[in-house]
Design a protein around this nucleic acid. Structure first.
Lengths: 252, 252
DNA sequence: CGTCTTATTGAATTGTCTCAACATGCGTGG
DNA sequence: CCACGCATGTTGAGACAATTCAATAAGACG
Protein backbone atom coordinates (compact mmCIF):
# COMPACT_ATOMS: atom_id res chain seq x y z
CA UNK A 1 0.00 0.00 0.00
CA UNK A 2 2.76 2.28 0.98
CA UNK A 3 4.66 1.27 -2.09
CA UNK A 4 2.17 2.88 -4.39
CA UNK A 5 3.56 6.31 -3.75
CA UNK A 6 6.35 5.31 -6.04
CA UNK A 7 4.06 5.46 -9.01
CA UNK A 8 2.71 8.90 -8.33
CA UNK A 9 4.59 11.59 -10.21
CA UNK A 10 5.53 14.32 -7.83
CA UNK A 11 5.15 17.97 -8.48
CA UNK A 12 8.49 19.59 -8.87
CA UNK A 13 10.24 16.26 -8.98
CA UNK A 14 12.04 17.21 -12.15
CA UNK A 15 14.05 19.70 -10.20
CA UNK A 16 15.48 17.04 -7.93
CA UNK A 17 18.98 15.81 -8.14
CA UNK A 18 17.42 12.42 -8.31
CA UNK A 19 18.72 10.10 -10.95
CA UNK A 20 17.60 6.83 -9.52
CA UNK A 21 19.79 3.90 -10.41
CA UNK A 22 19.38 0.22 -9.68
CA UNK A 23 19.45 -0.51 -5.94
CA UNK A 24 18.90 3.08 -5.04
CA UNK A 25 16.10 4.42 -2.94
CA UNK A 26 13.44 6.59 -4.53
CA UNK A 27 13.62 10.18 -3.44
CA UNK A 28 10.12 10.09 -2.03
CA UNK A 29 11.13 7.19 0.15
CA UNK A 30 14.21 8.99 1.40
CA UNK A 31 14.50 10.42 4.89
CA UNK A 32 15.85 13.63 3.46
CA UNK A 33 12.83 14.16 1.28
CA UNK A 34 11.04 16.70 3.49
CA UNK A 35 14.16 18.82 3.40
CA UNK A 36 14.99 18.18 -0.21
CA UNK A 37 11.62 19.59 -1.08
CA UNK A 38 12.68 22.92 0.31
CA UNK A 39 15.67 22.95 -1.93
CA UNK A 40 13.55 22.91 -5.01
CA UNK A 41 12.52 26.39 -4.10
CA UNK A 42 16.06 27.19 -3.24
CA UNK A 43 17.14 26.66 -6.75
CA UNK A 44 14.88 29.28 -8.18
CA UNK A 45 13.89 31.38 -5.20
CA UNK A 46 16.42 33.58 -3.52
CA UNK A 47 15.69 33.73 0.17
CA UNK A 48 17.55 30.55 1.06
CA UNK A 49 20.63 31.12 3.17
CA UNK A 50 24.11 30.70 1.89
CA UNK A 51 25.81 27.56 2.96
CA UNK A 52 23.02 25.21 2.07
CA UNK A 53 23.37 22.94 -0.86
CA UNK A 54 22.83 19.41 -1.84
CA UNK A 55 25.17 17.10 -3.60
CA UNK A 56 25.70 13.46 -4.44
CA UNK A 57 28.71 11.40 -3.59
CA UNK A 58 29.95 7.87 -4.08
CA UNK A 59 31.46 6.21 -1.04
CA UNK A 60 33.46 3.00 -1.27
CA UNK A 61 33.34 0.22 1.24
CA UNK A 62 35.36 1.07 4.32
CA UNK A 63 35.46 4.78 3.58
CA UNK A 64 34.28 7.25 6.24
CA UNK A 65 32.08 10.22 5.43
CA UNK A 66 32.98 11.95 8.68
CA UNK A 67 34.80 11.21 11.91
CA UNK A 68 33.74 11.71 15.47
CA UNK A 69 34.24 15.33 16.59
CA UNK A 70 34.60 16.64 13.05
CA UNK A 71 32.82 19.99 12.77
CA UNK A 72 29.24 19.49 11.74
CA UNK A 73 28.54 20.60 8.19
CA UNK A 74 26.01 18.28 6.64
CA UNK A 75 23.38 15.69 7.10
CA UNK A 76 23.71 12.69 4.82
CA UNK A 77 21.06 10.43 3.37
CA UNK A 78 21.96 6.93 2.30
CA UNK A 79 21.04 6.64 -1.35
CA UNK A 80 22.37 3.12 -1.79
CA UNK A 81 24.37 0.73 0.34
CA UNK A 82 24.64 0.97 4.11
CA UNK A 83 26.69 2.52 6.88
CA UNK A 84 27.62 1.94 10.46
CA UNK A 85 28.12 4.73 12.97
CA UNK A 86 30.40 4.14 15.90
CA UNK A 87 32.32 5.75 18.70
CA UNK A 88 35.97 4.83 18.17
CA UNK A 89 37.66 3.17 21.10
CA UNK A 90 34.90 3.68 23.58
CA UNK A 91 36.10 1.66 26.54
CA UNK A 92 39.01 0.27 24.61
CA UNK A 93 36.99 -0.98 21.67
CA UNK A 94 34.82 0.60 19.01
CA UNK A 95 31.22 0.94 20.05
CA UNK A 96 28.72 0.68 17.21
CA UNK A 97 25.79 3.01 17.90
CA UNK A 98 23.77 2.58 14.75
CA UNK A 99 23.28 1.10 11.33
CA UNK A 100 21.92 3.18 8.50
CA UNK A 101 20.32 1.57 5.52
CA UNK A 102 19.00 2.96 2.32
CA UNK A 103 16.91 6.11 2.71
CA UNK A 104 18.04 6.81 6.26
CA UNK A 105 19.87 9.83 7.59
CA UNK A 106 23.26 10.10 9.18
CA UNK A 107 24.71 12.86 11.28
CA UNK A 108 21.69 14.91 12.27
CA UNK A 109 22.56 14.50 15.94
CA UNK A 110 25.58 16.73 15.47
CA UNK A 111 23.58 19.79 14.57
CA UNK A 112 23.32 21.38 17.99
CA UNK A 113 26.82 20.63 19.30
CA UNK A 114 28.19 21.44 15.83
CA UNK A 115 30.31 18.29 15.98
CA UNK A 116 29.52 14.78 14.88
CA UNK A 117 29.10 12.53 17.88
CA UNK A 118 30.33 9.46 16.02
CA UNK A 119 32.24 8.24 12.99
CA UNK A 120 30.28 7.04 9.95
CA UNK A 121 31.75 4.31 7.75
CA UNK A 122 30.38 2.60 4.65
CA UNK A 123 29.77 -1.11 5.11
CA UNK A 124 29.76 -1.61 1.34
CA UNK A 125 30.10 0.49 -1.76
CA UNK A 126 27.44 3.11 -1.27
CA UNK A 127 26.21 6.51 -2.35
CA UNK A 128 24.85 9.39 -0.31
CA UNK A 129 23.09 12.71 -0.72
CA UNK A 130 24.64 15.46 1.31
CA UNK A 131 22.57 18.30 2.68
CA UNK A 132 24.99 20.96 3.72
CA UNK A 133 23.94 23.04 6.69
CA UNK A 134 26.86 25.05 7.90
CA UNK A 135 25.33 25.68 11.25
CA UNK A 136 22.04 25.90 12.97
CA UNK A 137 22.46 29.65 13.21
CA UNK A 138 22.67 30.12 9.50
CA UNK A 139 19.59 28.18 8.68
CA UNK A 140 17.74 30.91 10.47
CA UNK A 141 14.13 31.83 10.22
CA UNK A 142 13.63 30.94 6.61
CA UNK A 143 13.74 27.24 7.14
CA UNK A 144 11.09 26.55 9.65
CA UNK A 145 10.22 23.40 7.78
CA UNK A 146 13.78 22.25 8.04
CA UNK A 147 13.72 22.79 11.77
CA UNK A 148 10.51 20.89 12.16
CA UNK A 149 11.97 18.04 10.17
CA UNK A 150 14.98 17.98 12.41
CA UNK A 151 12.85 17.97 15.53
CA UNK A 152 10.76 15.09 14.23
CA UNK A 153 13.79 13.03 13.37
CA UNK A 154 15.54 13.69 16.63
CA UNK A 155 12.56 12.82 18.75
CA UNK A 156 12.02 9.66 16.74
CA UNK A 157 15.64 8.82 17.42
CA UNK A 158 15.17 9.38 21.12
CA UNK A 159 12.13 7.12 21.19
CA UNK A 160 13.99 4.46 19.26
CA UNK A 161 16.89 4.63 21.67
CA UNK A 162 14.58 4.22 24.64
CA UNK A 163 13.28 1.05 23.09
CA UNK A 164 16.79 -0.09 22.34
CA UNK A 165 17.92 0.56 25.88
CA UNK A 166 14.98 -1.34 27.28
CA UNK A 167 15.75 -4.22 24.94
CA UNK A 168 19.40 -4.31 25.83
CA UNK A 169 18.54 -4.46 29.47
CA UNK A 170 15.80 -7.02 29.57
CA UNK A 171 16.19 -9.22 26.55
CA UNK A 172 18.21 -12.36 25.98
CA UNK A 173 20.61 -12.80 23.09
CA UNK A 174 17.91 -14.63 21.13
CA UNK A 175 15.40 -11.88 21.64
CA UNK A 176 17.83 -9.15 20.70
CA UNK A 177 18.89 -10.86 17.50
CA UNK A 178 15.32 -11.66 16.49
CA UNK A 179 14.30 -8.07 17.14
CA UNK A 180 17.31 -6.77 15.29
CA UNK A 181 16.59 -8.79 12.16
CA UNK A 182 12.93 -7.81 12.15
CA UNK A 183 13.79 -4.16 12.67
CA UNK A 184 16.26 -4.23 9.81
CA UNK A 185 13.72 -5.89 7.59
CA UNK A 186 11.05 -3.34 8.48
CA UNK A 187 13.33 -0.44 7.83
CA UNK A 188 14.30 -1.72 4.42
CA UNK A 189 10.68 -2.34 3.64
CA UNK A 190 9.80 1.21 4.62
CA UNK A 191 12.21 2.41 1.95
CA UNK A 192 10.74 0.27 -0.76
CA UNK A 193 13.10 -2.69 -0.58
CA UNK A 194 12.07 -6.29 -0.22
CA UNK A 195 11.65 -7.28 3.36
CA UNK A 196 12.02 -11.04 3.26
CA UNK A 197 15.46 -11.20 1.72
CA UNK A 198 18.30 -8.72 1.88
CA UNK A 199 22.01 -8.18 2.32
CA UNK A 200 23.36 -7.70 5.80
CA UNK A 201 26.44 -5.60 5.27
CA UNK A 202 27.63 -5.66 8.86
CA UNK A 203 29.96 -8.18 10.44
CA UNK A 204 29.15 -10.37 13.42
CA UNK A 205 31.33 -8.15 15.57
CA UNK A 206 29.48 -5.05 14.43
CA UNK A 207 26.17 -6.64 15.32
CA UNK A 208 27.58 -7.84 18.60
CA UNK A 209 28.91 -4.41 19.48
CA UNK A 210 25.58 -2.83 18.65
CA UNK A 211 23.51 -5.37 20.56
CA UNK A 212 25.87 -5.83 23.45
CA UNK A 213 26.86 -9.38 22.64
CA UNK A 214 30.12 -11.14 21.87
CA UNK A 215 30.54 -11.88 18.18
CA UNK A 216 30.69 -15.58 19.04
CA UNK A 217 27.27 -15.34 20.63
CA UNK A 218 25.86 -13.64 17.54
CA UNK A 219 27.28 -16.41 15.43
CA UNK A 220 25.90 -19.14 17.66
CA UNK A 221 22.43 -17.67 17.79
CA UNK A 222 22.23 -17.09 14.05
CA UNK A 223 23.31 -20.67 13.46
CA UNK A 224 20.62 -21.88 15.81
CA UNK A 225 18.00 -19.70 14.11
CA UNK A 226 18.94 -21.45 10.88
CA UNK A 227 18.63 -24.90 12.39
CA UNK A 228 15.23 -23.91 13.73
CA UNK A 229 14.18 -22.90 10.23
CA UNK A 230 13.62 -19.27 11.19
CA UNK A 231 16.11 -17.81 8.74
CA UNK A 232 18.37 -18.78 5.92
CA UNK A 233 21.79 -17.21 5.85
CA UNK A 234 24.31 -17.72 3.11
CA UNK A 235 27.34 -15.50 2.91
CA UNK A 236 25.94 -12.04 3.56
CA UNK A 237 22.50 -12.77 2.16
CA UNK A 238 19.73 -13.17 4.69
CA UNK A 239 16.28 -14.56 4.14
CA UNK A 240 13.56 -14.48 6.77
CA UNK A 241 11.75 -17.80 6.49
CA UNK A 242 9.49 -17.59 9.51
CA UNK A 243 8.65 -14.04 10.39
CA UNK A 244 5.98 -15.07 12.86
CA UNK A 245 8.46 -17.29 14.64
CA UNK A 246 10.94 -14.46 14.95
CA UNK A 247 8.26 -12.10 16.19
CA UNK A 248 7.24 -14.58 18.82
CA UNK A 249 10.85 -14.85 19.92
CA UNK A 250 11.37 -11.11 20.03
CA UNK A 251 8.24 -10.46 22.05
CA UNK A 252 7.44 -11.62 25.47
CA UNK B 1 32.96 30.02 38.74
CA UNK B 2 29.78 29.09 37.09
CA UNK B 3 27.92 29.78 40.29
CA UNK B 4 28.62 33.48 40.08
CA UNK B 5 25.93 33.97 37.51
CA UNK B 6 23.52 33.69 40.37
CA UNK B 7 24.59 37.03 41.71
CA UNK B 8 24.17 38.94 38.50
CA UNK B 9 20.80 40.64 38.26
CA UNK B 10 19.24 39.78 34.96
CA UNK B 11 17.52 42.20 32.67
CA UNK B 12 13.86 41.56 32.58
CA UNK B 13 14.07 39.16 35.45
CA UNK B 14 11.33 40.94 37.27
CA UNK B 15 8.90 39.73 34.66
CA UNK B 16 9.64 36.09 35.40
CA UNK B 17 7.32 33.86 37.31
CA UNK B 18 10.32 33.15 39.41
CA UNK B 19 9.81 33.25 43.12
CA UNK B 20 12.74 31.21 44.23
CA UNK B 21 12.22 29.32 47.45
CA UNK B 22 14.61 27.22 49.44
CA UNK B 23 15.79 24.15 47.55
CA UNK B 24 14.60 25.50 44.26
CA UNK B 25 16.72 26.02 41.21
CA UNK B 26 17.47 29.54 40.04
CA UNK B 27 15.73 30.42 36.83
CA UNK B 28 19.01 31.11 35.08
CA UNK B 29 20.15 27.60 35.96
CA UNK B 30 16.97 26.04 34.65
CA UNK B 31 16.80 24.08 31.41
CA UNK B 32 13.72 25.99 30.43
CA UNK B 33 15.43 29.33 30.73
CA UNK B 34 16.13 29.89 27.02
CA UNK B 35 12.45 29.43 26.35
CA UNK B 36 11.25 31.28 29.39
CA UNK B 37 13.10 34.32 28.14
CA UNK B 38 10.83 34.42 25.14
CA UNK B 39 7.84 34.47 27.36
CA UNK B 40 8.87 37.71 28.94
CA UNK B 41 8.04 39.29 25.65
CA UNK B 42 4.95 37.24 25.43
CA UNK B 43 3.53 38.93 28.44
CA UNK B 44 3.67 42.38 26.95
CA UNK B 45 4.14 41.81 23.24
CA UNK B 46 1.36 40.38 21.16
CA UNK B 47 2.81 38.22 18.42
CA UNK B 48 3.13 35.10 20.53
CA UNK B 49 0.83 32.32 19.45
CA UNK B 50 -2.17 31.26 21.43
CA UNK B 51 -1.69 28.09 23.36
CA UNK B 52 1.57 29.04 24.92
CA UNK B 53 1.75 29.90 28.54
CA UNK B 54 3.77 29.18 31.57
CA UNK B 55 2.59 28.16 34.95
CA UNK B 56 3.81 26.75 38.24
CA UNK B 57 2.57 23.65 39.91
CA UNK B 58 3.21 21.67 43.06
CA UNK B 59 3.50 17.93 42.64
CA UNK B 60 3.42 15.55 45.59
CA UNK B 61 5.51 12.46 45.88
CA UNK B 62 4.12 9.63 43.79
CA UNK B 63 1.97 11.91 41.66
CA UNK B 64 2.29 11.77 37.86
CA UNK B 65 2.42 14.87 35.71
CA UNK B 66 1.54 12.92 32.59
CA UNK B 67 1.14 9.33 31.48
CA UNK B 68 2.59 7.52 28.52
CA UNK B 69 0.58 8.23 25.36
CA UNK B 70 -1.19 11.23 26.82
CA UNK B 71 -1.49 13.94 24.17
CA UNK B 72 1.51 16.22 24.27
CA UNK B 73 0.72 19.64 25.63
CA UNK B 74 3.62 20.90 27.64
CA UNK B 75 7.25 20.64 28.50
CA UNK B 76 7.96 20.64 32.22
CA UNK B 77 10.99 21.92 34.08
CA UNK B 78 11.78 20.55 37.50
CA UNK B 79 11.86 23.51 39.86
CA UNK B 80 12.45 21.47 42.99
CA UNK B 81 12.49 17.78 43.80
CA UNK B 82 12.99 15.04 41.23
CA UNK B 83 11.14 12.77 38.85
CA UNK B 84 11.49 9.44 37.16
CA UNK B 85 10.23 8.72 33.67
CA UNK B 86 9.31 5.18 32.76
CA UNK B 87 7.52 3.00 30.27
CA UNK B 88 4.87 1.14 32.21
CA UNK B 89 4.90 -2.61 31.91
CA UNK B 90 7.52 -2.83 29.26
CA UNK B 91 8.11 -6.56 29.06
CA UNK B 92 6.00 -7.21 32.09
CA UNK B 93 7.72 -4.70 34.32
CA UNK B 94 8.12 -0.94 34.41
CA UNK B 95 11.19 0.23 32.55
CA UNK B 96 12.76 3.40 33.94
CA UNK B 97 14.15 5.47 31.08
CA UNK B 98 15.32 8.54 32.91
CA UNK B 99 15.70 10.55 36.09
CA UNK B 100 15.13 14.28 36.10
CA UNK B 101 16.61 16.44 38.78
CA UNK B 102 16.27 20.10 39.55
CA UNK B 103 16.49 22.36 36.51
CA UNK B 104 16.00 19.59 34.00
CA UNK B 105 13.24 19.19 31.45
CA UNK B 106 10.65 16.48 31.09
CA UNK B 107 8.53 15.54 28.13
CA UNK B 108 10.22 17.34 25.25
CA UNK B 109 10.55 14.06 23.36
CA UNK B 110 6.81 13.97 22.85
CA UNK B 111 6.71 17.09 20.75
CA UNK B 112 6.91 15.51 17.32
CA UNK B 113 4.70 12.49 17.91
CA UNK B 114 2.35 14.71 19.93
CA UNK B 115 2.21 12.04 22.63
CA UNK B 116 4.37 11.52 25.64
CA UNK B 117 6.57 8.46 25.17
CA UNK B 118 6.68 7.71 28.90
CA UNK B 119 5.02 8.37 32.23
CA UNK B 120 6.56 10.96 34.56
CA UNK B 121 6.23 10.53 38.32
CA UNK B 122 7.53 12.60 41.21
CA UNK B 123 10.04 10.78 43.40
CA UNK B 124 9.43 13.26 46.20
CA UNK B 125 7.37 16.34 46.83
CA UNK B 126 8.36 18.60 43.95
CA UNK B 127 7.40 21.62 41.94
CA UNK B 128 7.52 22.20 38.20
CA UNK B 129 7.22 24.97 35.66
CA UNK B 130 4.99 24.06 32.78
CA UNK B 131 5.57 25.48 29.33
CA UNK B 132 2.45 24.80 27.35
CA UNK B 133 2.97 24.19 23.67
CA UNK B 134 -0.20 22.84 22.18
CA UNK B 135 1.56 21.45 19.16
CA UNK B 136 4.59 21.92 17.04
CA UNK B 137 2.39 23.33 14.29
CA UNK B 138 1.08 26.13 16.40
CA UNK B 139 4.42 27.33 17.60
CA UNK B 140 5.06 28.21 14.01
CA UNK B 141 7.50 30.66 12.60
CA UNK B 142 7.45 33.11 15.46
CA UNK B 143 9.37 30.95 17.82
CA UNK B 144 12.53 30.12 16.04
CA UNK B 145 14.39 30.38 19.30
CA UNK B 146 12.07 27.87 20.84
CA UNK B 147 12.71 25.46 18.01
CA UNK B 148 16.43 25.85 18.31
CA UNK B 149 16.20 25.18 22.01
CA UNK B 150 14.24 22.04 21.34
CA UNK B 151 16.76 20.87 18.78
CA UNK B 152 19.62 21.43 21.19
CA UNK B 153 17.96 19.54 23.95
CA UNK B 154 16.93 16.64 21.77
CA UNK B 155 20.35 16.20 20.29
CA UNK B 156 21.92 16.37 23.73
CA UNK B 157 19.49 13.67 24.77
CA UNK B 158 20.49 11.52 21.82
CA UNK B 159 24.16 11.89 22.65
CA UNK B 160 23.49 11.05 26.26
CA UNK B 161 21.57 7.95 25.28
CA UNK B 162 24.40 6.78 23.07
CA UNK B 163 26.70 7.00 26.05
CA UNK B 164 24.17 5.21 28.19
CA UNK B 165 23.74 2.43 25.66
CA UNK B 166 27.48 1.99 25.39
CA UNK B 167 27.70 1.83 29.16
CA UNK B 168 24.93 -0.69 29.49
CA UNK B 169 26.60 -2.89 26.95
CA UNK B 170 30.19 -2.85 28.01
CA UNK B 171 30.29 -1.95 31.65
CA UNK B 172 30.08 -4.06 34.77
CA UNK B 173 27.66 -3.36 37.60
CA UNK B 174 30.39 -1.49 39.47
CA UNK B 175 31.20 0.71 36.54
CA UNK B 176 27.58 1.51 35.84
CA UNK B 177 26.85 2.48 39.41
CA UNK B 178 29.99 4.57 39.72
CA UNK B 179 29.16 6.36 36.49
CA UNK B 180 25.58 6.83 37.56
CA UNK B 181 26.51 8.46 40.84
CA UNK B 182 29.03 10.76 39.20
CA UNK B 183 26.58 11.73 36.51
CA UNK B 184 23.92 12.54 39.05
CA UNK B 185 26.39 14.61 41.02
CA UNK B 186 27.49 16.52 37.94
CA UNK B 187 23.95 17.26 36.90
CA UNK B 188 23.05 18.61 40.29
CA UNK B 189 26.20 20.69 40.31
CA UNK B 190 25.32 22.13 36.91
CA UNK B 191 22.10 23.45 38.44
CA UNK B 192 23.82 25.08 41.34
CA UNK B 193 23.42 22.36 43.93
CA UNK B 194 26.20 20.86 45.98
CA UNK B 195 27.86 18.00 44.22
CA UNK B 196 29.44 16.06 47.06
CA UNK B 197 26.32 15.40 49.08
CA UNK B 198 22.74 15.08 47.95
CA UNK B 199 19.49 13.19 48.24
CA UNK B 200 18.89 10.25 45.96
CA UNK B 201 15.15 10.13 45.62
CA UNK B 202 14.99 6.93 43.61
CA UNK B 203 14.71 3.42 44.98
CA UNK B 204 17.17 0.59 44.41
CA UNK B 205 14.71 -0.96 41.98
CA UNK B 206 14.41 2.27 40.03
CA UNK B 207 18.17 2.50 39.73
CA UNK B 208 18.35 -1.16 38.81
CA UNK B 209 15.71 -0.80 36.14
CA UNK B 210 17.47 2.21 34.70
CA UNK B 211 20.91 0.62 34.71
CA UNK B 212 19.84 -2.86 33.75
CA UNK B 213 20.66 -4.46 37.08
CA UNK B 214 18.67 -6.36 39.67
CA UNK B 215 17.86 -4.27 42.71
CA UNK B 216 19.81 -6.76 44.82
CA UNK B 217 22.89 -6.09 42.72
CA UNK B 218 22.49 -2.33 43.18
CA UNK B 219 22.26 -2.86 46.89
CA UNK B 220 25.29 -5.12 47.02
CA UNK B 221 27.46 -2.78 44.97
CA UNK B 222 26.48 0.29 46.98
CA UNK B 223 27.27 -1.56 50.18
CA UNK B 224 30.65 -2.52 48.78
CA UNK B 225 31.33 1.08 47.69
CA UNK B 226 30.73 2.09 51.28
CA UNK B 227 33.09 -0.53 52.65
CA UNK B 228 35.70 0.67 50.18
CA UNK B 229 35.26 4.20 51.49
CA UNK B 230 34.09 5.55 48.15
CA UNK B 231 30.73 6.79 49.35
CA UNK B 232 28.72 7.23 52.46
CA UNK B 233 25.05 6.37 52.28
CA UNK B 234 22.60 6.83 55.07
CA UNK B 235 18.91 6.55 54.40
CA UNK B 236 18.47 8.48 51.17
CA UNK B 237 21.37 10.84 51.71
CA UNK B 238 24.44 10.19 49.63
CA UNK B 239 27.90 11.60 50.09
CA UNK B 240 30.70 11.09 47.61
CA UNK B 241 33.84 10.57 49.69
CA UNK B 242 36.28 9.61 46.98
CA UNK B 243 35.38 11.12 43.65
CA UNK B 244 38.67 10.15 42.09
CA UNK B 245 38.15 6.55 43.13
CA UNK B 246 34.72 6.48 41.57
CA UNK B 247 36.03 8.05 38.39
CA UNK B 248 38.72 5.46 38.16
CA UNK B 249 36.13 2.75 38.58
CA UNK B 250 33.79 4.21 35.98
CA UNK B 251 36.53 4.59 33.40
CA UNK B 252 38.60 1.92 31.85
C1' DC C 1 46.34 -19.26 -5.26
C1' DG C 2 48.01 -17.88 -1.06
C1' DT C 3 47.26 -14.69 2.74
C1' DC C 4 44.57 -12.21 5.94
C1' DT C 5 40.30 -11.36 7.83
C1' DT C 6 35.91 -13.05 9.47
C1' DA C 7 33.07 -16.79 11.10
C1' DT C 8 32.14 -21.12 13.51
C1' DT C 9 32.34 -24.35 17.17
C1' DG C 10 33.93 -26.18 21.70
C1' DA C 11 35.02 -26.04 26.74
C1' DA C 12 35.72 -23.69 30.90
C1' DT C 13 34.86 -19.46 33.59
C1' DT C 14 32.27 -15.80 35.64
C1' DG C 15 29.17 -11.96 36.72
C1' DT C 16 24.72 -11.24 37.51
C1' DC C 17 20.12 -13.03 38.37
C1' DT C 18 16.81 -15.56 40.91
C1' DC C 19 14.88 -17.21 44.92
C1' DA C 20 14.59 -16.79 49.66
C1' DA C 21 15.06 -15.24 54.31
C1' DC C 22 15.60 -11.50 57.15
C1' DA C 23 16.13 -6.46 58.48
C1' DT C 24 14.89 -1.86 58.37
C1' DG C 25 12.18 2.24 57.36
C1' DC C 26 7.91 4.60 56.84
C1' DG C 27 3.21 5.94 57.06
C1' DT C 28 -1.21 5.25 59.22
C1' DG C 29 -4.38 4.98 62.68
C1' DG C 30 -5.28 4.07 67.25
C1' DC D 1 3.51 8.86 70.52
C1' DC D 2 3.67 4.17 69.80
C1' DA D 3 2.41 -0.09 67.44
C1' DC D 4 1.34 -2.20 63.54
C1' DG D 5 1.74 -3.53 58.71
C1' DC D 6 3.57 -2.93 54.25
C1' DA D 7 7.13 -1.40 51.35
C1' DT D 8 11.94 -1.21 50.67
C1' DG D 9 16.54 -2.69 51.43
C1' DT D 10 20.16 -6.18 52.67
C1' DT D 11 22.50 -10.46 52.51
C1' DG D 12 23.29 -15.40 51.19
C1' DA D 13 23.45 -19.55 48.12
C1' DG D 14 22.76 -21.73 43.84
C1' DA D 15 21.72 -21.49 38.83
C1' DC D 16 22.54 -20.03 34.29
C1' DA D 17 23.33 -17.25 30.22
C1' DA D 18 26.83 -15.18 28.01
C1' DT D 19 31.80 -14.37 27.95
C1' DT D 20 36.49 -15.61 27.29
C1' DC D 21 40.02 -18.32 25.45
C1' DA D 22 41.32 -21.30 21.92
C1' DA D 23 41.45 -23.99 17.81
C1' DT D 24 39.60 -24.72 13.25
C1' DA D 25 37.02 -23.45 9.06
C1' DA D 26 35.50 -20.54 5.50
C1' DG D 27 35.56 -16.24 2.77
C1' DA D 28 37.46 -12.17 0.68
C1' DC D 29 40.84 -9.91 -1.93
C1' DG D 30 44.78 -8.79 -4.33
Amino acid sequence: MDRQRKQIPQIGAKKRLDVKGAGEVDCQDCGLDPMCSILEYAEEGSDVPEGILLRRRQVSRGETIFMKDDPFRSVFAVKSGSFKTYIPKFSGIDQVVGFHVIGELIGIEGIAAERYPYTARALQDSSVCELRIESLQETGRELETLQKGIISMLSAEVAFNHQLIASLIHQSADQRLAGFLLNLSDRLHARGMRQEEFQIGMSRSDIGSYLGLASETVSRVLTRFQKQGLIQLRHKRLRLLDRAGLEELAER
